[in-house]
C-alpha cells in the first residue's frame, strides 16, 4: 500500500503541479454552496466542502455531450473526448456513483464515449471533512471507499495523507516532491477519520439495510405513499438532475447555420419529467405523476441494483435538498414502507 504524507505546503505545491500538467477540476464556493469547476489557482480549491450542487459525474457524463458530427449525405463521424484530466476532491459517495456508472456503461453494449472520458480521468477522492445537511452515506455503505480510486486524500492533523493506486496513481504521486511515507500514527488517524465518517454521515437514519430495500419495494408497488407524495410533485426533475447515479439521457440534433451540418448530442434527462416515456405518436407510457415518482425509487432501490448488485442510491442527500416541496427523501420513503407495509393498507 502506497500512502504518503503531505504537509500543507507540499499539498499546495502538488496542486500547483497538477494545474500545470493537466486540466484540474475541483470544488469552489458559490454563495453558501459548492460546485465543481475548473481550478486554475491552488487557493481556489476547497477540500473542506460539504456537498456540491451537481455531482462530479458531470465530468464523466457531461450534461451535454457531443456524440457525432453529421455532414451532408447522412455522413456521421464520432466525436471523442479523450484529453486527460483530474477531478480532485471527489467525495467517496460520489466516487461510488461513478463506479456504478462504469458498470452500467461497460456492460452489454459498451459506450465508448463514456469509457474514453472515464479512462482519461485520474480521480482523486477526498474523505469528507464537513457533513452536509442531508447526507446519509453512512447508512448505505458509501461514507468511505477503500478501492477503485487513483488517489485518496484524507485530512489529518498537520496535512493530508495521499494513497495512490495503479499507473494513474503513480503519475499523481510523481508530481509531488520527496514525500514521506505515512507513519503508523498517520494511518491510525486515517482509520479514525473513516470510523467517524461512517458514523457521522447519517443525517437521516435508514431503518432498513440496503440489501433489504429491493425486497421492500417488491412488496410496495401499490402502496399509497406513491400517490400521496406525488400530489406535491412538480415533475421538475430536480431529484434526477442532481443525482450522482442517474444516467438517463435524451439524444438531439442541432444544426449549424449552414443547416446541412451539425452535431448529435446527448443531454441529461429525468424520468420524473412529464414527457420522458412519450412516443412520437403522442402516447405517454408513464403519464401518471405517481408512476413517474415511484419509478425513481424503483430505479434506485430495485431495478438498477438487479443489474449491478448494489443499491443505486449512494446517500449524498442532494435530492432531499433540491426538492422544494420536500418529497424526494429516499430515507423517509424507505422507512415508511418498512414501518407501514402495504398489506396493512390493503387490509383497511
Amino acid at each position: 500500500m502506497s500512502v504518503y504524507k503531505l504537509s500543507m505546503e507540499q499539498m499546495r505545491d502538488w496542486i500547483s503541479r497538477l494545474i500545470a500538467e493537466r486540466t484540474l477540476y475541483g470544488v469552489q464556493q458559490r454563495d453558501e454552496r459548492f460546485v465543481f469547476g475548473r481550478v486554475e489557482r491552488p487557493e481556489e480549491l476547497r477540500l473542506d466542502y460539504d456537498v456540491t450542487i451537481l455531482p462530479p459525474k458531470k465530468y464523466v457524463m457531461p450534461p451535454r455531450e457531443n456524440l457525432l458530427a453529421y455532414l451532408p449525405q447522412e455522413h456521421y463521424e464520432s466525436l471523442w473526448a479523450d484529453e486527460p484530466f483530474v477531478p480532485l476532491g471527489v467525495h467517496p459517495y460520489d466516487f461510488v456513483a461513478i463506479r456504478q456508472l462504469d458498470l452500467l456503461f461497460e456492460r452489454d453494449n459498451p459506450d465508448e464515449h463514456y469509457l474514453r472520458r472515464r479512462k482519461a480521468a485520474a480521480i482523486v477522492v477526498v474523505d469528507v471533512e464537513r457533513v452536509s445537511a442531508n447526507v446519509f452515506a453512512g447508512c448505505v455503505g458509501t461514507a468511505v471507499v477503500e478501492e477503485g480510486f487513483d488517489g485518496l486524500l484524507t485530512r489529518v492533523e498537520d496535512g493530508y495523507l495521499l494513497e495512490v493506486r495503479g499507473a494513474k496513481g503513480e503519475w499523481l504521486v510523481s508530481l509531488a516532491e520527496s514525500l514521506a511515507p505515512a507513519t503508523r500514527a498517520d494511518l491510525r488517524q486515517r482509520r479514525e477519520v473513516w470510523a467517524n465518517n461512517r458514523r457521522r454521515l447519517r443525517k437521516h437514519e435508514l431503518k432498513v439495510t440496503p440489501e433489504r430495500v429491493g425486497q421492500l419495494l417488491r412488496e410496495s408497488y401499490g402502496h399509497p405513499i406513491w400517490e400521496e407524495k406525488a400530489r406535491q410533485c412538480y415533475s421538475c426533475g430536480s431529484c434526477n438532475l442532481v443525482c450522482p447515479t442517474c444516467y438517463c439521457f435524451d439524444v438531439r440534433d442541432e444544426s449549424d447555420w449552414s443547416l446541412r451540418k451539425g452535431v448529435r448530442y446527448r443531454v441529461w434527462d429525468g424520468c420524473l419529467l412529464e414527457e420522458f416515456a412519450m412516443v412520437a405518436g403522442g402516447h405517454n407510457f408513464r403519464a401518471a405523476k405517481a408512476a413517474r415518482y415511484r419509478h425513481r425509487y424503483y430505479r434506485k432501490g430495485l431495478y438498477v441494483p438487479e443489474i449491478i448488485g448494489q443499491l443505486a442510491c449512494v446517500g449524498c442527500g442532494r435530492c432531499i435538498t433540491a426538492c422544494t416541496t420536500g418529497i424526494a427523501n429516499p430515507v423517509e420513503v424507505f422507512n415508511r414502507l418498512q414501518e407501514e407495509p402495504h398489506e396493512q393498507h390493503a387490509a383497511c
Partner: peptide
C-alpha cells in the same frame, strides 16, 4: 419541462 431543469444544470 420547468425552468428547474436548466437551473440545475
Amino acid at each position: 419541462y420547468p425552468v428547474c431543469v436548466e437551473c440545475k444544470l
